[in-house]
Amino acid sequence: MFFHKMISPGRKAMSQDVQPMDNLSKEMKKGAPRGFIAKLLKHSTAILLGLILVILFFSLARASVYKIRPYERGLHLRGGSFVGIDLPGWHFQIPFVDTVIGLNVSERPGTIDSLAAMTADDVTMDVSLLYTFRVVDPVTFALEVTEPEQIVAGFVKGTLRDVVNTRTMDDVMHSRVDFNQELLTALQQKEARYGVEFVLVQIQNASPPAEVMTAIKDKMVAKQLQEKAIADAAQAETLADSNYYTAQKKAEGDAYQITRLAEAEAQRIELSSEAKVAGLRAILAELDGKGTLAEQYIQVLIAQELNQNSKWIITGGSLPILDLTGATSVTQSSATP
C-alpha cells in the first residue's frame, strides 16, 4: 500500500506531461493537409508543365520509332521526297518530318468472277479466273501507280480477253493447261511496268451461251445415237454371219447325209439286183434242158422280171408280146426247142 502510494503521484505527473504533447500532435495532423494542398496550389503551374513535358517526350519517342513486319516493306519519305526502302525490323524517323508507308509484299489473290469474251470462232464465252501476284518493286507499285490493285485487275481482264480472242471455243473449254500457261506468259511481259510478279493464273470456269450448250448437248446425243446404231448394225451383221454359217453347215450336213443315203440306196439296189440276177441265173441253169414245162416257167420268170423293169413283156411260143403302155398285143411265134 505504501509503495503504491509512493508511485501514484509520479504517474500523475507523467500523465500531465503527456497530454500537452498529444494535443500538439493532433493540431499538427489537422494542419498538415491544408499545408500540402496549399503547396500544390502554389506549384501547380510547374507540375502541370512538367507533366506536359513528360507526355510530349514519350509521344515524340514513340513517334520516332516504328517497326516493319516480315511481310512488309517500308517506303521512307522525308519532306515528301523518297529516302529509301526499310526492311523488316525497328527503325527511326524524324517526327513530323518523315513519313513511312508500310506495304504488304506477300502473295495476294485476285479474282475475275465473270468476263464475256469472244473466241476465234465467234462464240461469246463467260470466263472466270483466279490469279495471284506479289509486289516486287514497292516504289513502282505504291509511288508510281495510282490505285495499283485496280490497275492490275484491269490489266489481267484485258489480257484474258485478248488470249481468249486467239483461241477456239474447244481450246478454251478443254485445253486449260495450255491456256493458263499462255495467259501467264502474256501477263509476265508487263510485270515490271506495275512492280509486281504474277505467281498463279488458273481458269475457274469457261462456259458458252445457253444455246451453244444446247447445241453441244444435242450433238453429243446424236453422236451417242450414231455410235449405238453402228454397234447395233455390227451386232446384227455378226448375228447374220453366224446364222448364215450355221445354215450353211446344216445344209452341208443335210446334203452329205442325203448323199450318203443315196449312195447306200444305190448300193442296196445294186446288191439286190446282183442277187436277183444270180438267183435267176441259178434257176435258169437248173431248168435248162428240162423240157417244155421248164421253158414255160422260164418265160414266166422272164416276163415277171421284165414287168418290173420294162413296159414290154416278151413271151415265147404262143404267149403274146404284151404292150403295157396300152397298145394292141402282138402274137409272136417262137421256135420250139
Rank of each mutant, 00 (worst) to 15 (best):
T328D: 09
S114H: 09
P88A: 00
V123R: 03
T259F: 13
Q332R: 07
R134M: 02
T159K: 08
I314R: 04
L75P: 00
A335K: 14
M118A: 13
F198E: 02
K217V: 13
N165K: 10
K249A: 14
I94A: 11
R11P: 04
Q296K: 15
Q16S: 13
S242H: 11
N104C: 08
K29I: 10
S128T: 02
A278R: 06
N104M: 05
A229M: 12
A278N: 10
M213A: 10
H76M: 12
G154Y: 07
L322H: 08
L284G: 07
A233Y: 07
M1A: 13
A236H: 01
T166G: 06
L225F: 10
I47Q: 01
S128N: 01
V105R: 00
L284V: 14
R34D: 12
S175H: 10
Q150E: 12
K157E: 11
K311S: 09
F92D: 03
F2S: 10
G195Q: 07
S334W: 07
V163Q: 01
Y194E: 04
K276Y: 12
G31S: 14
A222W: 07
Q296S: 08
V277A: 14
Q16C: 11
D98T: 03
P70E: 10
E237M: 12
S59Q: 06
V156C: 02
T315I: 06
L261N: 12
V135N: 05
I258N: 11
D218I: 09
F58E: 10
L53I: 15
T132Y: 01
I203E: 01
R34G: 12
M125Y: 03
D98M: 03
V221L: 11
L51V: 14
D22T: 07
L53C: 09
V127K: 06
L41I: 14
F179H: 06
K5V: 05
E144W: 04
I94D: 05
S207V: 15
L324R: 14
K219D: 14
E144F: 09
L287W: 08
E197V: 08
A247V: 14
D122N: 14
L56W: 13
A262K: 12
L129Q: 02
N23Y: 09
V164R: 02
T238D: 09
Q188I: 06
A153Y: 02
V136K: 00
G110P: 03
T168Q: 05
L53F: 14
G31K: 13
A262T: 08
I7A: 12
V163M: 05
K223A: 15
V54N: 04
E107W: 00
V145P: 02
V54Q: 01
Q332N: 10
V156N: 01
D122T: 08
G317H: 03
I258Y: 14
G158K: 15
D241W: 14
Q267V: 05
L271K: 12
R281M: 13
A278Y: 04
L49C: 11
V65N: 10
L129A: 00
V54C: 08
A38Y: 13
S175R: 14
R11Q: 11
V177N: 06
A236K: 11
L75M: 04
I101H: 04
Q248S: 15
D98S: 02
Y244V: 11
Q332G: 04
N165R: 15
R69T: 11
G291C: 04
V163N: 01
D170Q: 06
G317D: 02
I216C: 01
F58S: 07
G102D: 05
T111R: 12
H174Y: 15
H174M: 13
P208D: 02
